[in-house]
Design a protein around this nucleic acid. Structure first.
Lengths: 145, 145
DNA sequence: TGAATAAAGGACAAGAATATCCTTAATTAT
DNA sequence: ATAATTAAGGATATTCTTGTCCTTTATTCA
């Protein structure tokens, strides 16, 4: 198992890609993004449409159109993307899948995973969509391969 | 997304259930286990067969048969179960799904998730299959609901 | 030995996630 | 206005996970 769904992996990589293009004032077209993050183009289209509808992405149709994020979105936490795509399970669900697992009715792993989940949550709330733009522009970080 | 696959959730809960029965010298039948952890009986059968084949579980056919774990298995780490069912992805995979993500070719989340993955790995290696038997016998921990 | 019980194993079914296809709508440039 | 471009949207296809069914094999007990 991975931490995120494949859909969410594509979403995060695409958002980072679009973000660093936006930082240079460019919009990114679907083909460009799909090539830039090595994802299936038409599947990615669906993901970006979904993020667009949810207000986590902006787009313009027609020649020289494409996807971009504005300053407001650059500052949003990555957790917004993860929640929109994978929901709250990663932050709040029981590791063993129990619906009523809680402090007063804990599963065996409840205590230990509480800390893990909190750290993942903190990490994704602290990290912003635009937070890696310099490193991405400098080629220090990878979004494909 | 959850941390573990549904299959792995059932596997872990079943192993804990069987373990605490084994601690009392009992074997646990399929119906008993499925009821005890609230899982689909026939699907659970497949999971336990698989663990049996892999030597992570013992079973006896016929009347008064069932599943059990011996002292050797009681002491094995929970990571053995997770690896057998979900593979190594949770411990070693890239959060963004990149095949070649590494220290020298990192994805944007590489550094931060390294720590998270290490903690999950430590936790599952430190926790033994039989480690919650007293609490389970005392009804302090839940494997269903 | 024969009947009953319980896991093993193979095949199939349902559902969800992932991926593709094709048409429509919006925007730009000529 | 028209043609070209690009995202939006609906429908369908594929693959993987989850779940069920049915027959076979091993074991126990009478």
């Amino acid at each position: 198992m991975a931490i995120f769904s494949k859909t969410c992996e594509y979403a995060i990589r695409a958002v980072f890609y679009i973000s660093h293009k936006s930082a240079s004032g460019d919009r990114a077209g679907l083909k460009d993004i799909a090539a830039g993050i090595d994802s299936p183009e038409l599947y990615l289209a669906k993901i970006l449409q979904d993020l667009s509808r949810k207000g986590l992405m902006r787009s313009v149709k027609g020649p020289h159109g494409g996807f971009y994020v504005d300053a407001d979105l650059l500052a949003r936490p990555l957790s917004d993307i993860v929640e929109a795509v994978d929901g709250f399970g990663l932050f709040h669900g029981c590791a063993l899948g129990l619906k009523q697992c809680s402090e007063i009715n804990p599963c065996p792993l409840h205590e230990q995973f509480k800390s893990i989940r909190d750290q993942i949550s903190d990490l994704l709330h602290r990290t912003t969509i635009g937070g890696f733009n310099e490193e991405l522009l400098g080629g220090l970080l990878s979004l494909k391969k």
